[in-house]
Amino acid sequence: MSTLIPTIKSGNKKPVEPNFNLLPSLPSWFDDILGKGLGTEFMSNFNTGITLPAVNVINSDNEFVIDMAVPGLKKSDFEINIDNQVLSIGVETKTENNEKNENYTRREFGYSSFKRTFTIPESVDADKISADYSDGILKIHLPKREEAKRKPVKQIKIS
């Protein structure tokens, strides 16, 4: 709780009168209990949407590779575009379940989406960018232009 309760300091001869306006109110106690104790357990299935996935960017001699962990999706869920040296990776999924029984009808639906964007360096050959999705990992390969690839060390002999 963020509300402070006054206490008696040692050596103080006059006791501090409690000010009940400084005590936490009943609604704030409920907020603390629901926010900390029951919030995640009670509502564990409430918001199961996709959060912004973490990304690994690997810079090798010949290419950049973007790895993104996004399990549970299909290849068709992804939209990957390049526009004006900006790579955008987006996902939009919709789910709908209908269950009918003789005594009740239950309908649940959900919507999830995210979009990540990356500025592509001039050293990338945009025409050769490729992507693959396997075992929940999206990999985007951004090959470097020939002139940008790291050249092996050349030793110069003194004449």
Rank of each mutant, 00 (worst) to 15 (best):
I129H: 04
L34G: 14
T105G: 11
G49D: 08
Y104G: 08
T105P: 03
G110S: 09
A126C: 09
S112F: 00
E63N: 09
E102Y: 07
A54D: 12
F114C: 01
M43V: 12
E99I: 08
F64L: 07
K128P: 04
V57E: 07
I50M: 10
M68P: 02
T95F: 07
K75P: 08
I66A: 04
D125V: 01
E92L: 11
R116G: 00
V124F: 06
S60F: 05
G110C: 04
D31K: 14
E92W: 05
N47I: 04
E96N: 14
D32W: 14
N59K: 07
N103P: 04
D125F: 05
G90Q: 06
S44W: 09
K36T: 08
D77V: 03
A54H: 10
T117Q: 08
E102M: 08
R116Y: 00
T51C: 07
E108T: 15
Y111W: 03
K94F: 09
Y111H: 09
K128F: 11
Y104V: 02
A69I: 11
I58E: 08
K100M: 12
K74M: 08
D127F: 07
F42S: 12
N98D: 13
D31Y: 14
D125A: 13
N101A: 14
E102I: 06
F109G: 15
N59W: 05
S60L: 07
V55F: 03
M68W: 00
D61T: 06
K128Y: 08
G49S: 14
K94P: 03
K128E: 10
N59I: 03
D77A: 13
T119G: 10
D31N: 14
G72A: 05
K74C: 10
I89G: 01
P71F: 05
F64P: 00
N98I: 09
N101R: 11
N81A: 09
I82S: 04
M43K: 14
Q85K: 12
I58L: 11
L34N: 15
V91D: 00
T95K: 06
E99Q: 14
E96Y: 10
N97R: 08
